[in-house]
Design a protein around this nucleic acid. Structure first.
Length: 182
DNA sequence: GTCCGGATCTTT
DNA sequence: AAGATCCGGACA
């Protein structure tokens, strides 16, 4: 099982969102590692994407997205749920992939279908914003899993984004029971 | 300073 | 179908 390196993230965001399907997210904190397989992602394409946070400009909250690829961008939605994203492409492009659902593999007792549940299960909160996925306590691994058929759908909860809301930038493993919605 | 709406989840 | 709950961003 091999940890994904910087170059994996420094690529087209849609390619990263697709290739993250089937990879394993690991949270190490000195106890038993918690891990799950990624079954659903969404691509956010930078400052021109009206659904992407970076489209409203560079601020303290979105600073991490504007930084180098391979770091975690974590934010709070609806005042109560955290969302974990992976920064992609070259520094300054401000693109990211949202991790929406995992199939629990080890050390996880609760469901991870949905970005909020995923973060709660792994104990990820805003203190993880900016944390390096190539070298930190949060890691993405490749275990050679062969990806089955993939479906593409419009992203969830971004209806305000006009034409961008209709683009099929959500990727999921077809028919997988752990996706957040069919 | 005030106001508004959200990349959600749980409960009814 | 609705409520919880709060921060960032937009205005003034």
């Amino acid at each position: 099982m091999q940890r994904l390196e910087r170059g994996f993230y420094d690529r087209d965001t849609r390619a990263v969102a697709l290739d993250l399907l089937g990879k394993i997210l690991v949270r190490r904190d000195g106890r038993r590692p918690r891990m799950g397989r990624i079954v659903e992602t969404e691509a956010y394409l930078g400052v021109h994407d009206r659904a992407c946070h970076s489209a409203r400009g560079r601020t303290a909250r979105t600073e991490t997205m504007f930084g180098p690829p391979g770091r975690a961008y974590v934010y709070l939605v609806y005042g109560m749920h955290h969302c974990l994203n992976v920064v992609t492409e070259a520094e300054g492009r401000a693109c990211a992939v949202l991790l929406r659902a995992l199939e629990p593999l080890d050390g996880l007792d609760s469901r991870c279908d949905g970005p909020g549940r995923l973060c709660r299960a792994l104990g990820v909160d805003r203190s993880f914003d900016g944390c390096d996925l190539v070298g930190g306590p949060l890691a993405l691994m490749d275990d050679g899993f062969q990806l089955p058929a993939v479906d593409r759908r419009p992203r969830v909860g971004v209806d305000y984004a006009g034409a961008w809301a209709r683009r099929r930038l959500r990727f999921l493993i077809r028919g997988h029971p752990c996706v957040s919605r069919p």
